[in-house]
C-alpha cells in the first residue's frame, strides 16, 4: 500500500456517506408517515420516462464525430437493440444481442 491508510479510509467514508445522502434526501424530506405532497407525487409519477431518456443520453455523451470509430459503433449497435426489441420484445435478447454486436464492431470492424 503506497497511499496513506487513514487518508484512504477518510475518502472512502466521505464518498459513501455523501452518496447515501444523495439517495436518502427525498425520503428524508417526503418519506414520513404523512403522504408526500400532491405535487411531489405527480413529479414522482411523471419523472421515470424523463430520467430514462436522460440516462440514454448520458450513455452517448462521450461520442465524438472526429473519427468514425467514435460514433458509428454506438449508433449501429443501438439500431440493432431497437430493431431486436421491436421484433422479439425480449429484454435479454435485445441487451445481449446489441452488446455482442457492439463488441464485434469495436474489436473487429472499427479498430
Amino acid at each position: 500500500m503506497n497511499i496513506a491508510f487513514e487518508y484512504s479510509i477518510g475518502v472512502v467514508m466521505m464518498v459513501a456517506v455523501v452518496t447515501l445522502f444523495t439517495r436518502a434526501l427525498p425520503f428524508l424530506l417526503f418519506g414520513g408517515k404523512k403522504d408526500a405532497p400532491k405535487w411531489v407525487q405527480f413529479i414522482g409519477r411523471t419523472l421515470p420516462p424523463a430520467i430514462i431518456a436522460i440516462l440514454v443520453l448520458y450513455c452517448f455523451k462521450d461520442m465524438s464525430i472526429t473519427e468514425v470509430k467514435n460514433w458509428l459503433p454506438q449508433i449501429l449497435a443501438s439500431i440493432a437493440v431497437v430493431l431486436l426489441h421491436l421484433w422479439k420484445k425480449n429484454t435479454l435478447l435485445s441487451v445481449g444481442g446489441g452488446t455482442f454486436i457492439y463488441m464485434v464492431l469495436i474489436q473487429v470492424v472499427f479498430i
Binding site: I52, L55, V56, Q74, T91, V95, Y102
Partner: peptide, 8 residues
Amino acid sequence: FSMTALFL
C-alpha cells in the same frame, strides 16, 4: 454497452 442497451 450492455448498460446503454438496457436503458434503451
